[in-house]
């Protein structure tokens, strides 16, 4: 009961924040009805996906302060579970998604146990290493299609809510929006939960945290599992939305970093951070990419600018956009 109340408790944010959030929600709900290009719709879907990725990452990377750069392996597990189950056994999305999440979380416990013996840089590099190992294995594993990946069969009867196959993007949009809202409420409850507080104590000082009865190793593993569940869920969705997955686009290091970047840019360890980050980075990436990437001789310029922005943020305001908002307000509130 209290968990549900916590999920809906936004009372630590000033009214201004909630007004902006409410306006944003109205905009999101109405977006498909507004005039828009299909490119804008695709960007919007990307925004929701990366918001969810970032929210998940934020539990371990933001609240617990453990820089995880290997989230893509769990995107891959989610995406491949859905794809394999649909291709081979005709299993609908709503069954394969929870299975994928369970498999990913199970794998995260196995990996997490040794992983969280490491700290700081060592931890970050190790997360990359584990993710790359899994990607390499998938690339040579025939059962999942190797490096070529898998293509999902078109079932032909649109709209198909069971298998998530639609002609029009707004179906995907609303389903994802529902996931987004559920994810947001869950995180809001999470940051109010005992684990949420304990993780922030761990980030502050692990010795003090342990002296307060907190099993630091286990708490980190639990947060890692929550983060994993989020990205695996979106991974499953990604498989249905793209109809086509391969190790390179679901498990690459670039994706791992992008996920972390959303939260980092917006403000790691804050509720709105990942959403703010995604709302800046995703449109920038897709529009910069389409404007500049297409022109001869300018391939790469979008990512050059992107890299420069990342360097700038890291050097000037490591707490991200939300850190700037807090600096202006002169208060650190509403984490």
């Amino acid at each position: 009961m209290e968990a549900i109340r916590n999920a809906f408790d936004f009372s630590d944010f000033p009214r201004l924040d909630m007004t902006v959030a409410g306006a944003a929600l109205v905009f999101l709900l109405a977006f498909p009805a507004l005039p828009h290009s299909s490119f804008a719709m695709a960007t919007m879907i990307q925004f929701l996906m990366f918001s969810l990725y970032g929210m998940g990452w934020n539990t371990i990377g933001g609240y617990a302060g453990q820089v995880d750069l290997g989230k893509a392996q769990y995107v891959g597990i989610g995406a491949y579970t859905t794809a394999v189950m649909m291709v081979r056994w005709d299993v609908p999305f709503w069954v394969s998604m929870p299975v994928g999440m369970a498999l990913a979380v199970g794998w995260s416990f196995i990996i997490g146990y040794p992983l969280f013996k490491l700290k700081g840089h060592y931890f970050a590099i190790a997360t990359i290493a584990t993710s790359l190992v899994l990607k390499d294995l998938f690339e040579v594993w025939d059962f999942v299609g190797g490096a070529k990946g898998l293509e999902l069969p078109l079932r032909g009867n649109f709209p198909d809510f069971l298998y998530l196959q639609f002609r029009e993007d707004y179906y995907y949009f609303y389903i994802l929006l529902a996931m987004f809202l559920a994810g947001l409420l869950f995180i809001n409850g999470f940051r109010h939960s005992r684990l949420g507080y304990q993780l922030r104590a761990i980030k502050d000082n692990e010795d003090v945290a342990r002296s307060l009865g907190i099993n630091v190793h286990w708490c980190k593993i639990k947060a890692y599992a929550v983060a994993t569940a989020y990205v695996a869920m979106v991974g499953s969705f990604h498989a249905c939305y793209n109809f086509n997955i391969e190790p390179e686009d679901t498990m690459s290091l670039d994706l791992s970093v992008l996920i972390a970047m959303m939260a980092m840019l917006g403000g790691a360890g804050s509720l709105w951070g990942p959403i703010i980050g995604a709302s800046i980075l995703v449109p920038m990436r897709s529009y910069l990419g389409s404007w500049l990437g297409g022109q001869a001789g300018l391939a790469g310029l979008d990512l050059v600018i992107y890299g420069a922005i990342i360097m700038l943020i890291a050097a000037v305001q490591p707490r991200g956009v939300w850190g700037m908002v807090e600096a202006v307000r002169g208060r650190r509130r509403g984490v």
């Binding site: 972390a260 992107y306 490591p318």
Partner: peptide, 21 residues
């Protein structure tokens, strides 16, 4: 630490894609 990791990661993207250009 997170800023150091991302800063040098940004540098990596920057150099790699500058080379691509």
């Amino acid at each position: 630490t997170i800023a150091q990791l991302f800063g040098t990661f940004g540098l990596m993207l920057f150099l790699r894609n500058l080379a691509l250009m």
